[in-house]
């Protein structure tokens, strides 16, 4: 399931991971979370405790592939990190969730891809607004970072800063 030992690529670089993912089944006492701990709560758990966790710089949330980003419209700006889970890499719903956060709600925090995250999908993740990626520990980080730059040009606008080719011509 959620692999906390995995490799983190953030803002195009291999990075240390300070955030601990909390499973849906995991029971956690929020009052015992120290300011130095960084945790990512399952969305349902986060929602139940919203008054307590909203605005905390060390508490993020994660959406599963069947949990859309729509309910976060008004609150996402007070969440430091939103992770989106890919239970299998071929389930592409999370791409749209990230775009919803970035394009509709203008979310500026960290969007992290978690779960079955593969280097060969990273170019696409990035264009949809993800800026960090938790990869399997056996992935070659160099390969993964190279994949972020598979294409230097894009035909269409995305959630990154790229201008569609048709506006450049």
């Amino acid at each position: 399931m959620l692999d906390n030992a995995a490799l983190l690529i953030k803002d195009q670089q291999l990075s240390d991971n300070h955030w601990q993912l909390i499973d849906k089944e995991q029971v956690i006492d929020l009052s015992s979370v120290a300011d130095s701990d960084h945790i990512i709560l399952p969305f349902a758990h986060w929602q139940e405790n919203q008054p307590m966790v909203l605005g905390k710089a060390n508490i993020g949330l994660w959406l599963d592939s069947d949990e859309s980003a729509e309910p976060l419209a008004s609150v996402c700006h007070d969440v430091p990190l939103i992770a989106i889970n890919f239970p299998v890499f071929s389930d592409g719903r999370g791409y749209s969730y990230a775009r919803t956060l970035r394009d509709h709600f203008a979310y500026r925090g960290e969007i992290r891809a978690i779960g079955d995250v593969l280097p060969d999908q990273m170019y696409f993740y990035q264009r949809c607004g993800f800026n960090s990626f938790l990869l399997r520990s056996d992935v070659n980080p160099e390969t993964a970072i190279n994949c972020l730059n598979d294409f230097s040009l894009s035909y269409q606008a995305g959630s990154d800063q790229r201008t569609p080719i048709f506006h450049q011509r």
Binding site: F89, S90, D91, G92, Y95, S96, R99, Q121, Y123, F124, Y125, Q126, R127, C128, F151, S154, Y155, Q156, G158, P164, I165, F166
Partner: peptide, 17 residues
């Protein structure tokens, strides 16, 4: 052709249902 260009390597729609 305009649809072809827009849909080519569309980052969001590479893994549709």
């Amino acid at each position: 052709e305009l649809i072809r260009q827009w849909s080519t390597f569309h980052p969001e729609f590479a893994l549709l249902p």
